[in-house]
């Protein structure tokens, strides 16, 4: 197993784990964390991609940096929304049925 493949597989594993968690767990904070884990998985994959050959490819690094910035803002927004949902409903879960 090459260096690249190892990290790539770990990355995909993290992504899958996060995907599972975001679907299964009702608690909003867990969902937000799960989304972050998914993001980290993709970033890991990208960083691994940069080291496929001997020379380091800078493009995935640039992508990861940009991606992290986006992920931070998204997480910030998510946490604020979560707090406001808690303030309004007193619960940190989404209502069960999306219907009326």
């Amino acid at each position: 197993m090459t260096f690249f493949l190892f990290f790539a597989l770990v990355g995909i594993g993290l992504f899958t784990l996060g995907l599972y968690a975001v679907i299964v767990h009702p608690h909003l904070l867990r969902k937000i964390l799960a989304v972050n884990v998914m993001g980290s998985g993709v970033f890991l994959l990208l960083v691994a991609l940069a080291k496929r050959s001997d020379s380091v490819d800078p493009v995935p690094h640039a992508m990861v940096i940009t991606g992290i910035v986006v992920a931070i803002s998204a997480t910030a927004l998510a946490v604020i929304l979560m707090l406001r949902v808690k303030g309004e409903t007193g619960r940190v879960k989404l209502p069960e049925t999306p219907q009326e």
């Binding site: 929304l81 406001r84 409903t89 989404l94």
Partner: peptide, 8 residues
């Protein structure tokens, strides 16, 4: 707010 959270 709940719909916004779900949407996010």
């Amino acid at each position: 707010l709940s719909s916004a959270m779900r949407y996010l």
